[in-house]
Deep mutational scan, measured.
Amino acid sequence: MTYKLISNGKTLKGETTTEAVDAATAEKVFKQYANDNGVDGEWTYDDATKTFTVTE
């Protein structure tokens, strides 16, 4: 399945996607992506749209 990340960081804003077997796997990928880009904030997940959002 395709999962989307919306980043509302102070230094990184935008969207990216990943293919993953489940939401937990996608979350690990996205949290590593955010960490690699210096984004640390509040996370939410919408199962209906398969979208994670991180806001700093």
Rank of each mutant, 00 (worst) to 15 (best):
M1A: 13
M1C: 14
M1G: 12
M1W: 13
M1E: 13
T2E: 09
T2N: 06
T2H: 07
Y3T: 03
Y3R: 03
Y3N: 04
Y3S: 03
Y3I: 04
Y3H: 04
K4E: 04
K4L: 08
K4R: 12
K4A: 05
L5P: 03
L5G: 02
L5E: 03
L5C: 06
L5T: 02
L5Y: 03
L5D: 03
L5Q: 02
L5I: 03
L5A: 02
I6V: 11
I6C: 07
I6N: 05
I6S: 04
I6R: 06
S7E: 04
S7F: 15
S7Q: 08
S7K: 04
S7L: 15
N8H: 12
N8I: 15
G9N: 08
G9V: 14
G9H: 10
G9R: 05
G9C: 15
G9P: 05
K10E: 09
K10L: 13
K10H: 12
K10N: 11
T11N: 12
T11I: 12
T11P: 05
T11E: 09
L12P: 05
L12V: 09
K13T: 10
K13S: 10
K13W: 11
K13M: 12
G14W: 14
G14E: 13
G14I: 15
G14V: 15
G14T: 14
G14F: 15
G14H: 14
G14M: 14
E15L: 14
E15Y: 13
E15M: 14
T16C: 15
T16P: 04
T16W: 15
T17G: 03
T17D: 04
T17Q: 10
T17H: 09
T17F: 14
T18W: 07
T18Y: 11
E19T: 14
A20H: 02
A20P: 01
A20F: 04
V21I: 13
V21P: 15
D22P: 00
D22V: 02
D22N: 07
A23T: 08
A23F: 11
A24P: 08
T25F: 06
T25D: 08
T25R: 05
T25N: 08
T25L: 06
A26V: 02
A26C: 00
A26Y: 00
E27C: 15
E27G: 06
E27I: 06
E27K: 07
E27W: 14
K28S: 09
K28C: 10
V29L: 12
V29A: 08
F30P: 00
F30K: 00
K31W: 06
K31C: 05
K31Y: 05
K31E: 03
Q32W: 05
Q32G: 05
Y33N: 02
Y33K: 03
Y33T: 04
Y33D: 01
A34S: 04
A34W: 08
A34F: 05
A34R: 01
A34H: 02
N35P: 01
N35T: 13
D36Y: 07
D36T: 08
D36M: 11
N37G: 04
N37W: 13
N37Q: 10
G38C: 08
G38K: 07
G38S: 06
V39P: 02
V39S: 03
V39N: 03
V39R: 02
V39Q: 05
D40F: 15
D40P: 03
D40T: 14
D40K: 13
G41K: 01
G41I: 03
G41P: 02
G41L: 04
G41Q: 02
G41A: 03
E42Q: 10
W43K: 01
W43L: 03
W43Y: 01
W43Q: 00
W43F: 05
W43C: 00
W43I: 03
W43S: 00
T44R: 08
T44Y: 10
T44V: 09
T44D: 08
Y45I: 00
Y45V: 00
Y45G: 00
D46A: 03
D46P: 00
D46L: 03
D46Y: 04
D46I: 04
D46Q: 04
D47E: 14
D47Y: 07
D47H: 10
D47K: 07
A48G: 08
A48E: 12
A48M: 10
A48W: 07
T49P: 00
T49E: 05
T49R: 06
T49G: 03
K50V: 03
T51P: 00
T51D: 00
T51A: 04
T51M: 03
T51S: 04
F52K: 01
F52R: 01
T53K: 06
T53N: 05
T53Y: 13
T53H: 07
T53Q: 05
V54D: 00
T55V: 09
T55Y: 10
T55E: 07
T55W: 12
T55D: 07
T55G: 05
T55Q: 07
E56Q: 10
E56K: 06
E56F: 09
E56L: 09
